[in-house]
């Protein structure tokens, strides 16, 4: 349907688009309220102009006070990748390692997921694909111990960037979150000279729970960026607007497939454009 008049029906249509894109009720209301007041003060009567204002408001929400790039220079640097089960942590590590290596840096991976069946083998295959080494022990061993080993190896081998995989964990599981806290303690103690990136991976298919995930992970980790995966599907990932605006954490990458090159830098403009386009 094509709207020519800026009326209630048109605004309701916009509201619906936001909700079905997982923007969530409260953020949607916030956006629509802002839009209403802009329409009023600027006396906008053209629907296309309203859409342009809407895009501005949304891009504003996606803009944080932080940097959207990976801060891994000068060397050494360590990247820790965290998130709930199955969101795409290990795959994203493969893709990031590929990119960082391509930029001329020496990369090392740490198989910090010792829980999930064959998680270590999965990371080893990614290591082979990218052509980088993987520090690992056997399934069931202490993740903090592996991270410790990996840091020593990174120092000894003069590695530029060490990337650590962690087991998927639901944020409402105290003991698993504490285990993560232990890993960060080791990193802070053993590798204070390294630049630290803590990437939280969120699955674009996820609904409002992603906000809770980000909030709870932030309590145990100084998250520096978000990787938003699986944007190659029909999900729009709108929940990220609430995450970035409420928590002031920038999105650094988006995942757009399962291949090694399917990682892109986050571009708020393109993201908003895709969110508002009909499918």
């Amino acid at each position: 349907k094509i709207y020519t008049k800026v009326d209630e029906e048109f605004l309701e249509e916009l509201e619906e688009i936001l909700i079905v894109s997982d923007v969530g009720m409260s953020t949607t209301m916030e956006i629509i309220d802002k839009l209403r007041s802009e329409i009023k003060t600027r006396k906008i009567s053209d629907t296309e102009e309203v859409k342009a204002v809407l895009k501005d408001i949304m891009e504003e929400l996606l803009t944080t006070s932080k940097d959207n790039d990976l801060n891994i220079s000068p060397s050494p640097a360590i990247i820790i990748v965290i998130g709930v089960n199955g969101v795409g942590k290990t795959t994203s590590i493969g893709k990031i390692a590929y990119n960082v290596k391509a930029s001329g840096k020496k990369v090392l991976l740490a198989a910090g997921d010792t829980f999930r069946a064959a998680a270590i083998d999965q990371l080893k295959i990614w290591g082979e694909r990218v052509g980088v080494n993987v520090i690992h022990q056997q399934e069931g061993s202490d993740p903090a111990a592996i991270i410790y080993d990996a840091i020593q190896a990174a120092k000894a081998r003069k590695t530029d960037v060490l990337i650590c995989d962690t087991a998927g964990r639901l944020h409402n599981k105290r003991n698993l979150m504490n285990e993560l806290g232990k890993v960060f303690k080791i990193i802070n103690r053993e590798y204070p000279e390294a630049r630290k990136e803590v990437l939280l991976v969120l699955d674009a298919t996820t609904g409002q729970n992603a906000i809770q995930q980000a909030k709870t992970f932030k309590e145990v980790a100084d998250i520096t960026g978000i990787v938003l995966t699986k944007l190659d599907g029909t999900a729009k990932g709108g929940v990220i607007l609430g995450v970035t605006s409420e928590l002031d954490i920038p999105v650094k990458f988006v995942g757009v497939g399962e291949g090694i090159q399917d990682l892109q830098p986050f571009n708020p403009k393109d993201f908003v454009e895709a969110l508002l386009s009909d499918n």
């Binding site: 699955d203 609904g207 409002q208 999900a235």
Partner: peptide, 12 residues
């Protein structure tokens, strides 16, 4: 189906 899925669940 992942129980955390949002609005895309219907499409899937």
């Amino acid at each position: 189906v992942d129980a955390m899925t949002g609005q895309d669940a219907v499409n899937v």
